[in-house]
């Protein structure tokens, strides 16, 4: 099914990047402000949804050759590995820690292992949602 909606496609080209940026912003700001891995994963997924709607799945597949099943699996893997990782450092399962460094340009910046965990969450969410949408829509 080929769709040729010029307005939607032109708008999408711009808007998708805004959505992606928003997703990344929300991901990073989740530590101290509203946001977080789950939401940013969902927003990424909705951006992909928009792409699939504006174009068709085939075109997007060619443009972004990512297997979302792998994304979902690696997300789940990162989350579990994050838990096991702390065991290897002699701490309790899923123990999280944080520290601050002073970086050029950014000033004092906080680094937290939670970020890795949240990356896993985001990847799992985006992977699963897009996988579901793709597999249902391809079943036509």
């Amino acid at each position: 099914m080929r769709i040729n909606d010029v307005i939607l496609q032109s708008v999408t080209k711009v808007v998708v990047f805004i959505i992606f940026t928003l997703a990344i912003y929300l991901f990073v700001s989740g530590h101290n402000n509203p946001g977080g891995g789950f939401v940013s994963g969902l927003i990424l997924a909705s951006a992909f949804c928009l792409l699939f709607l504006a174009y068709d799945t085939e075109t997007i597949r060619k443009g972004i050759p990512i297997d979302f099943k792998v994304i979902a699996a690696s997300g789940a893997f990162i989350v579990v590995a994050c838990g096991l990782g702390s065991v290897l450092f002699g701490e309790a399962f899923l123990y999280q820690t944080f520290t601050t460094y002073t970086l050029p340009l950014f000033g004092e910046t906080e680094f937290a292992t939670v970020t890795i965990f949240e990356t896993g969450v985001a990847l799992a969410v985006v992977g699963v949602v897009v996988t579901i949408i793709l597999s249902i829509s391809e079943d036509v």
Binding site: N33, L94, Q96, A112, V114, F117
Partner: peptide, 19 residues
């Protein structure tokens, strides 16, 4: 180390649930 309580609960205090 996070000011967002909701996310701290999700990803740290109750990370097992989230996992």
């Amino acid at each position: 180390g996070g000011q967002n309580i909701v996310n701290s609960i999700l990803a740290d205090f109750r990370a097992f649930d989230t996992m």
